[in-house]
């Protein structure tokens, strides 16, 4: 008759599946496409990433030698990471942390 009952009772007496997020960190799996960082030492400001980026999340200014990266536009396809000739864009298997604002990341010249 009530087919859900066993499930309910089992759940009631088992550990919850919830992960208490900020206190328990969930480690991403290896190979996870996560946070993207730019290495300005390696970057040669070729703008390839800017042109490649499907959601237009990266802006490279070769004059000012800066890179503007919007992680909230980013779709984490890793096109830029795989296509950076200088290997200046690196992806870390890490989840994008929660933020109060949609902050844009600026990269300035190293020197």
């Amino acid at each position: 008759m009530v087919r859900m009952l066993p499930n309910i009772l089992r759940n009631l007496f088992s550990k919850p599946a919830t992960v208490k997020h900020p206190f328990v960190k969930r480690e991403p799996f290896p190979g996870h496409r996560g946070t993207i960082t730019f290495d300005m030492k390696k970057c040669d400001l070729c703008q390839d990433c800017e042109r490649l980026c499907p959601p237009v999340a990266i802006k490279v200014d070769p004059e000012a030698r800066t890179i503007t990266y919007d992680p909230f536009k980013c779709i984490y396809c890793y096109l830029c990471v795989t296509n950076c000739l200088q290997r200046a864009i690196r992806g870390r298997p890490a989840y994008t942390p929660p933020a109060y604002q949609k902050e844009i990341v600026y990269y300035k010249p190293e020197e």
Binding site: I8, N11, P16, A17, T18, K20
Partner: peptide
């Protein structure tokens, strides 16, 4: 709370 627990959540 209990509803959550029945649904395997913390609540």
């Amino acid at each position: 709370k209990l509803t959550a627990r029945m649904q395997n959540r913390v609540g």
